[in-house]
Nucleic acid binder design. Structure first.
Lengths: 248, 248
DNA sequence: CGGTGGATTGACCCAAATCAATTATAGTGG
DNA sequence: CCACTATAATTGATTTGGGTCAATCCACCG
């Protein structure tokens, strides 16, 4: 399942489900103790906007469980999703006072928040955090560039296949499996959110999902539960390289 | 002029035109001396491919002068530019052995290269470099996300206006001016490269450039020399926020 | 000069947007 | 338990922005 059963904050960092992938992954016991003093957990409900673009940011933090989206909006209302935040992903930018994007919870969420000021001070003092954050940011940059190819050059059908394969891949790496053969997962996004991510309309998303289903690339149970009988077939539909390509 | 007259390597870091913006910007004299031991300059000619996607990377480095592009290619030949590298921008990723994108010089270039291994070791030891690199990477991530909106939701006309305003802005920040009123610059890209950046065909680029010219948004002298009589008008054509929006 | 590569312009076509109507699906309260 | 909404999703008909194919045009250079 994509939505972890965890809906409450972990008892301590030792129990934290994201301790090995989050921004604090490299911290030693001392450093974790320091972080503990500036951190607090917050719960958000599905649909809730965590941060509005233009707001003052008073915290940064990690997604502990649940899923959020980063979205950019033009004055005339056109929107483009620019990020999908899964457990262990980092929210906010040290040193920046104002949020550039809307951050919206698509499921119930738990966040581990750090007060901005002390966190920034700690980043100056201990290299472990900024080193880890650098790694994570470089990964996000790669993902963003991958997404630029999707937005700029792929057909609607390829876009849908790309999104499905990305969700499938992220989902299975969370569970430490290699994505091959049959894969099953739940879509964390509505058709509308998928359209925002893909630079399409929701009608086109719906049509192409139906087409992929008709052609046997995917199977649907309800609107959200997806079975991919052959992951390689899906990758081929996405226009992605035969297999490899993926930089982890 | 966009192309700095500098075509040779600087004598020393003190003479370096990018010393205040590059990855080494925060380094003290000691650290610069350390870097000096692992660095070497390389010249590239316009059109030359610095790095092929899939190649082993044996160096990382900074653009000292000139302009390069980062490009992703699908097996069937569709290409998408995913980055524009200007002086002071960083090339390569510490810790990564294989290049994910083609890097191509669009003008003659000088690069300040660091041998990968010692550079990585130094990053572990001195926080100044990874802190600066983190800042730069976060800026690039913002730029990439800005670009996702352009690719996903803007019309061809807006895309052209967006590209022109980005080049104008970057160009004038290099010269420490505020972009207002009349702006003059040289396009560093061919129509074809612009199309690769914008997710368009070169014919559409040509048509929309002509349209913007016809409508008085820009003036052209030859194919490359651009005059923008009213920068705000250009921003409005780009669909960008009335003025602000820009996160520096 | 003719040639070559970049750029422009025109005619036509198609993939995805838009406009519009139905069809699930999930509550909610009588 | 069944109407009565409200929201998400599907499907159809039509339009359109940008792609494709093709014919010049232009500037520079040997």
């Amino acid at each position: 399942m994509l939505n972890e059963t965890l809906t409450a904050a972990p008892r301590s960092c030792g129990d934290c489900p994201i301790q090995h992938r989050a921004v604090c992954a490299r911290c030693d016991a001392d450093e974790l103790a320091q972080l503990d003093k500036m951190k607090y957990y917050r719960n958000f409900e599905a649909g809730q906007t965590l941060i509005w673009a233009g707001d003052r940011m008073e915290f940064v933090g990690s997604v502990v469980s649940g899923i959020a989206t980063l979205t950019q909006t033009m004055e005339d209302g056109r929107t483009q999703m620019v990020g999908l935040l899964l457990p262990s992903d980092f929210v906010g930018r040290p040193g920046r006072g104002v949020a550039p994007y809307d951050v919206v919870a698509t499921t119930d969420m738990v966040m581990c928040c750090f007060r901005m000021k002390p966190f920034e001070a700690m980043m100056e003092a201990t290299p472990h955090i900024s080193q880890r954050l650098l790694q994570m940011t470089l990964d996000e940059l790669d993902a963003a560039r991958e997404w630029m190819l999707v937005l700029g050059r792929k057909t609607a059908r390829e876009k849908i296949a790309s999104l499905l394969s990305i969700i499938a891949r992220r989902n299975s790496t969370l569970h430490l499996e290699q994505p091959t053969g049959q894969i099953v997962f739940d879509l964390p996004l509505t058709r509308d959110a998928m359209a925002d991510y893909l630079g399409l309309t929701l009608e086109t998303v719906s049509r192409q999902v139906s087409a992929l289903k008709r052609d046997g690339v995917i199977e649907l149970e309800g609107k959200r539960h997806v079975t991919v009988p052959d992951f390689h077939r899906l990758l081929a539909e996405a226009g992605d390289d035969s297999d490899g390509g993926m930089l982890v």
